[in-house]
Simulated assay, not measured.
Amino acid sequence: MQYIVFTDLDGTLVDHDTYSYEAAMPAIDMLKEKGIPLVFCTSKTRAEIEVYVDELNTGHPFISENGGAIFIPHDYFDVDYVSSRSTEKYDIIELGTDYSLLRNVLLNIAASEDLSVTGFGDMTDVEVSKDTGLDLDSACLAKQREYDEAFKLDGDEKDAETLISKIQANGLNYTRGGRYWHIIGENDKGKAVNILTQIYRKQYGDIKTVGLGDSLNDYPMLKVVDIPYLVQKHNGKHDPKIMDAKVNKVEGIGPVGWNMAISELLM
């Protein structure tokens, strides 16, 4: 039986404030030693994820922008699968909506409903850096969006309800993550994980999937894996919006909880 580990990044594998994954390194090394794929499934862009792929030398497929696309390195699988397009490095399975369409819809909603919405597309690299705490190079990578617009809403819950209603009326969807809202198409993390899981199953046969996240936008992923874990958020509490008893709640913040969950699983 082969484990496949799917994980969120911000607030889960990497610290919410420092963006460090050092606390999770013992478990990451354990996965490498046992030959267990570590698949990033995050709201981050392809360009951002590639930094972690290179730093951690994983070389596995990854899922960008809340399930917007699955990036599979060439010759990674021996089995056949259908992709949307290929680049020099990847076969890409696209599930999301084009970024420019998402931006246009969001801007139109904000203007027509008089909502104070600020998207990454409205911000400079310096502004994104200041707002997120990312260094300038990382902020530049965060703006290279393809299937998802990250944004902030400056308003009350009534404004939030109006925004949600208008996004859905346009045939689109949204998530509310640890830092930002995201406007997306029909994609979500769970749909992408399901597709990639089926390819892994064709490759390995008997597999067991593991998922780790920290917030509500991870729940679609946590619902479809065999073993779901919810780590504590940076405030030391679990996301109260995830009440599913099947989700294992880990007593550890971000990468600390991540390390505990994986270490205990593999012991």
Rank of each mutant, 00 (worst) to 15 (best):
Q232P: 04
A160Y: 14
I242R: 02
E55C: 10
D15N: 14
L56V: 09
G67V: 03
G121A: 09
R145V: 03
G155D: 06
D122M: 01
I199F: 07
D206R: 07
K202Y: 13
N170G: 11
D244R: 00
K32F: 10
G205M: 08
L230W: 00
V51H: 14
D131K: 06
D78I: 00
G171K: 10
Y99T: 05
V247R: 04
G178K: 01
N108V: 07
I242V: 12
P228I: 12
Y3E: 02
S116A: 12
K130L: 07
A69F: 01
A110P: 14
D15H: 14
G185Q: 01
K208W: 03
R179F: 12
E157A: 09
T132M: 07
T209C: 14
F151K: 05
P240D: 02
V105P: 08
Q232V: 07
K166V: 03
G177P: 01
E88Q: 13
D131P: 03
A160L: 10
D15T: 04
K233C: 06
L230F: 02
A23C: 09
N104P: 08
A169V: 06
T175S: 15
N194P: 12
F120M: 06
R145K: 06
S20L: 13
K143Y: 05
W258H: 12
Y19E: 01
D206Q: 07
G177H: 03
T18W: 08
K241V: 12
K89H: 08
L230D: 04
W181L: 02
Y219P: 14
M30S: 13
N108M: 04
Q2S: 15
Y200W: 08
Y52D: 03
K152L: 05
F77W: 08
I63A: 10
S86N: 05
A23E: 05
S84L: 11
L95I: 11
N187I: 04
G257Q: 02
A27P: 02
I227H: 14
K89G: 00
I164N: 12
M243P: 15
D125Q: 11
F120E: 01
K191L: 05
D188R: 04
N108K: 10
G213Y: 00
S263Y: 14
K191A: 04
